[in-house]
Amino acid sequence: MKRNKGYTKANFLKGILIENPLFVSILGTCPALATTKSIEAAIGMGLLFTFVLICSNILVSLLRKLIPEEVRTPAYIVIIATFVTIVKMLTQAFLPELYSTLGVFISLIVVNCIVLGRAEAYASKNNVFDSLIDALGMGLGYMVALFTMAFFRELLGTGGFTFGKIFTFIPTYKLQIIPKGYEIKLFQNPAGAFIVFGLILATIACIKNRKEAYKAYLDKQEKIRKAQEAKNVGGNK
């Protein structure tokens, strides 16, 4: 995209809508399926992920001229591993509840396909400000995607939403929507995660097909109208 005025806005929105890392380019699915048992865990995972993505994108784009071509990937892996260790220590100290809920998946951010992908595809070619915006967009898009997954999984799985269990500084509050005995426990299990993810992807595909069909319909109309006019003009002459 050339550097026009709306570039930064498009660059930011790209991460959330057009190129959502989870629903469009299907990356980073491992933590997405596992940590979306509850909304708080999903938001916590999204925050940690965005923090690592922003820091690694900034450092990678800062050093992009210094790191020689053939040792690019090892340097990026080291940078991302450092930030993941820092995040792990910070959560262990300040959010112990989140640390015990997410468990191994904080260290799995190192192998997350998005972080390494963004570092190599974008941050190593653009300046610091653009990479920061790109990281923010991607991170927010990933968090929104995790939130939608967790929203459905927790609503259907436990019948409501509990707050304050992981972020202990919020007063604990349990919002029960579906009456106690009627929730579907399956959605709290791993199988439910697959179903919710599959259904969300199916709806996105359906919307896209619907849009394309509508555009094709419009083009057909356009062609028929043009053919009509060409016939009339031919007739009056």
């Binding site: 399956l186 299990n189 199988a191 697959f194 179903i195 993810f197 599959g198 992807l201 359906c206 097909n209």
Partner: peptide, 22 residues
Amino acid sequence: PKAFKGLPIALITAAIMAIALM
């Protein structure tokens, strides 16, 4: 169905496999 082609149907089958393993 057209919308389920490709990945979504693969995910639903994976869910059924997960239930079997449960």
